[in-house]
Simulated scan of single mutants.
Amino acid sequence: MIHFLAGGSPAAQAALAVLAARYGQAPLGEARFLVALGGDGFMIEVQHRLLGRNRPVYGMNRGSVGFLMNAYREDDLPARLEAAQAATLHPLRMRAHSGGTTHAALAINEVSLLRETRQAAKLRILVDGKERMPELSCDGILLATPAGSTAYNLSAHGPIVPLDANLLALTPISAFRPRRWRGALLPAAARVEIQVLEPDKRPVSATADQTEVRDVRRVEIREDRAINMTMLFDPDHSLSERIIAEQFV
């Protein structure tokens, strides 16, 4: 039994109507398979809805990029679902401190810090409690999961990280000083703390996927391995294969 979820685009809604009429629409709690129709953003939204329940989700691309999705085909869907291979991901947990308040959020792709004004941000970076960079002058910085390494991280010229590498990508955004620093690959178990220097003069926001916190003073980030998220992929188009192939485009 299949339960279909669809994004708000006309293409996704049209696909929902066609597939539900053809294969039926099982109740969410009774479905053996969940199928998400949309783009990567919708897949991230669905995974956030299901956090803590670890329901495997098979995505079909009715969006633009579709890196986390399978190709859209209406035929033989039950057979594709039976043959699909699972990829298990863990989100990042962000704790952002702002104005005496601590804001917690989870990120499936990345946690990013960005300057809020024309002034460059000045950041201090600690890993596992040890100072690694006393001052980074930049537009921002992000910490990406392997799945998120092909998203904003790649656009910021960060490395693509294979799913089974047990690594996170720490990538500066338009670094000014030190100008030649390109970031770092960190163990998945690393605890990253980013402190904002001169926060009143150079305000910084922090974003975990769709959750944004303004005027942060300090941000702590770590991978939460207690939470599993499972995505299903066609055997000839697995997420691991796509991550490798993306490096040769």
Score class of each variant (00 low, 15 high):
Met1Pro: 15
Met1Gln: 12
Ile2Lys: 01
Gly7Ala: 02
Ser9Ile: 08
Ala11Asp: 12
Ala11Gly: 05
Ala17His: 06
Ala17Cys: 12
Val18Ala: 10
Val18Leu: 15
Leu19Arg: 10
Ala20Asp: 03
Ala21Asn: 12
Tyr23Leu: 10
Gly24Arg: 13
Leu28His: 14
Gly29Tyr: 05
Arg32Val: 15
Val35Asn: 04
Gly41Trp: 03
Phe42His: 12
Phe42Val: 05
Phe42Gly: 08
Met43Pro: 14
Met43Phe: 07
Gln47Thr: 13
Gln47Asn: 05
Leu50Arg: 07
Asn54Ser: 14
Asn54Gly: 12
Asn54Ala: 14
Arg55Ala: 00
Arg55Met: 09
Pro56Asn: 10
Val57Tyr: 02
Val57Arg: 07
Val57Trp: 01
Gly59Asp: 03
Met60Gln: 14
Met60His: 01
Arg62Val: 03
Ser64Val: 14
Phe67Arg: 02
Arg73Asp: 15
Pro78Gln: 06
Ala79Arg: 00
Ala79Thr: 06
Arg80Pro: 01
Leu81Trp: 12
Ala84Trp: 03
Thr88Trp: 05
Pro91Tyr: 11
Arg93Tyr: 00
Arg95Gly: 01
Gly100Arg: 07
Thr101His: 05
Thr101Val: 15
Thr102Gln: 06
Thr102Asp: 08
His103Ala: 03
His103Gly: 09
Ala104Asp: 14
Glu110Ser: 06
Leu114His: 06
Arg115Glu: 09
Arg115Tyr: 08
Glu116Tyr: 08
Glu116Ala: 13
Ala120Ile: 13
Lys122Gln: 15
Arg124Asn: 10
Val127Leu: 09
Gly129Asn: 09
Gly129Ala: 11
Gly129Thr: 05
Met133Asp: 04
Gly140Thr: 10
Gly140Asp: 06
Pro146Gln: 03
Ala147His: 08
Gly148Ser: 05
Gly148Ala: 14
Ser149Ala: 12
Ser149Lys: 02
Thr150Gly: 01
Ala151Arg: 00
Ala151Leu: 00
Tyr152Asn: 03
Leu154Cys: 02
Ser155Asn: 02
His157Val: 14
Pro162Ser: 04
Asp164Met: 10
Leu167Phe: 04
Leu167Pro: 11
Ala169Thr: 11
Leu170Pro: 06
Thr171Ile: 15
Pro178Asp: 08
Pro178His: 12
Arg180Val: 15
Leu185Asn: 04
Leu185Tyr: 00
Pro187Thr: 08
Ala188Trp: 08
Ala189Pro: 06
Ala190Glu: 01
Arg191Pro: 03
Val192Lys: 00
Ile194Cys: 05
Ile194Glu: 09
Asp200Lys: 07
Arg202Leu: 08
Pro203Cys: 10
Pro203Leu: 00
Ser205Trp: 10
Ala206Tyr: 00
Ala206Asp: 08
Thr207Ser: 14
Val213Cys: 12
Asp215Trp: 01
Glu220Leu: 07
Ile221Lys: 08
Ile221Val: 15
Ile221Phe: 11
Arg222Lys: 06
Glu223Tyr: 06
Arg225Met: 02
Ala226Phe: 05
Ile227Lys: 11
Met231Phe: 02
Phe233Glu: 00
Phe233Ser: 04
His237Phe: 06
Ser238Asn: 13
Ser240Met: 11
Ile244Trp: 13
Ala245Phe: 03
Ala245Thr: 04
Glu246Ser: 15
Phe248Leu: 15
